[in-house]
């Protein structure tokens, strides 16, 4: 809605703004002197400083940003590799040897980012050094075959000597005494009648 008196006042206001403010030479000098003496403002230490455009992109910053991005991508790949959700189910199918009390069982785990994987369970006295697994041709799956006595066995995979991973293709052991889940395999032929 327009003010009724606007045409009357507009020229005066315009003239006032157009005239500008004159600053004396001594006043300008005082102002510049105060600016010189004032302490320099501290730079922000926030993450924005590392963003190009927010604080400038030096070669050092560029390399650090690159290294950080590589670490993030690498970390994501490793966590995906050892996570049970992305592992390929292993057949873990025992091939029963007739007349023997053991069956050959093949264990598999997909862990493309792992440097070492070991099969550890009650059949090898839970010894992490007893049954190292081998990387297959695809370089994504680790496997090992070994004779296992017929019966119910509890086991898991030890990835890079630190991470316990249950077999995604086998049921979890109901008893979890030590905080990390294990898997159960039933090697058929237990004293079958």
């Amino acid at each position: 809605m327009a003010e009724p008196d606007e045409p009357r006042f507009a020229p005066g206001v315009r003239e006032q703004y157009q005239r500008g403010e004159t600053v004396g030479a001594d006043a300008r000098q005082r102002l510049l002197e105060r600016i010189r003496r004032a302490p320099r403002p501290r730079r922000r230490g926030g993450w924005l400083e590392w963003v190009p455009g927010a604080g400038g992109l030096t070669p050092l910053r560029a390399s650090l940003i690159t290294a950080g991005l590589l670490a993030l991508v690498g970390g994501a790949l490793v966590s995906r590799a050892v996570g049970p959700s992305l592992t390929v189910p292993s057949p873990a199918a025992p091939s029963a040897a007739a007349g023997t009390s053991q069956s050959m069982v093949r264990f598999e785990l997909a862990a493309p980012g792992a440097a070492a994987v070991a099969l550890v369970g009650d059949f090898n006295d839970w010894d992490p050094r007893a049954t190292p697994m081998r990387r297959t041709e695809t370089s994504a799956t680790w496997s090992v075959s070994l004779p296992v006595a017929r019966g119910r066995h509890v086991y898991g995979f030890l990835v890079d000597g630190r991470h316990w991973v249950p077999d995604p293709s086998a049921p979890l052991a109901p008893e979890e005494d030590f905080g990390s889940a294990s898997s159960v395999i039933l090697v058929a032929g237990v004293g079958s009648s």
Partner: peptide
Amino acid sequence: ISKALEGAAKRAPVERILSAVRA
């Protein structure tokens, strides 16, 4: 023995190992 070895492999605290063996 197997239960104790499992605890050792998983680096469980002593009390937890003993508790699991007792169970």
